[in-house]
């Protein structure tokens, strides 16, 4: 059982490869996508398995913020951590507004990233737990 199922999105494949190796070594199940569109495709295929998406803000084509909105619209329970090149309050706020869990400055310490990912996945699991409980309550109430 891995720590969490991750999806890593960045246009730099070299970055993706290394990060995948490093995170896999830390017992994460990592999938990668080199663009926003590819990320959405992967989520469509095995949508509910993915718990946390690590998303670069600056990408050609569909950029980080657009991809974030799209992910949040289709899979509201998936948590997203933004990786940003420039740690501006403005871009952070924008990411948060669109439902990102947190943001990190690139390049970042792997330990920080792992910590955030763990928090995010925990949050996601808590959410799912609550939803299951709510549903169960509903069902039991209906049965009663």
């Amino acid at each position: 059982m891995s720590n969490a199922n991750l999806l890593l999105v960045d246009d730099e494949t070299a970055f993706l490869d290394t990060m995948k190796k490093r995170l896999s070594k830390r017992d994460f199940n990592v999938k990668t996508a080199d663009s926003g569109m590819a990320a959405l495709d992967i989520l469509r295929e095995n949508g509910h398995q993915t718990e946390v998406v690590i998303l670069d803000v600056k990408m050609p084509g569909m950029d980080g913020i657009e991809t974030l909105s799209e992910i949040k619209r289709k899979y509201p329970l998936v948590e997203v951590i933004m990786l940003t090149g420039h740690a501006t309050v403005a871009s952070a706020i924008e990411g948060m507004k669109h439902g990102a869990y947190d943001y990190l400055m690139k390049p970042c310490e792997i330990d920080n990233l792992v910590e955030k990912v763990m928090e995010a996945s925990a949050k996601k699991r808590r959410h799912e737990q609550k939803i299951i409980e709510a549903r169960m309550k509903e069902i039991t109430q209906r049965m009663a």
Binding site: E12, A14, F15, T18, M19, R22, G85, K106, P107, I110
Partner: peptide
């Protein structure tokens, strides 16, 4: 510069 640096750091 940021992206290559990030890759270097990750490597």
């Amino acid at each position: 510069i940021n992206n290559p640096v990030a890759i270097m750091v990750e490597e």
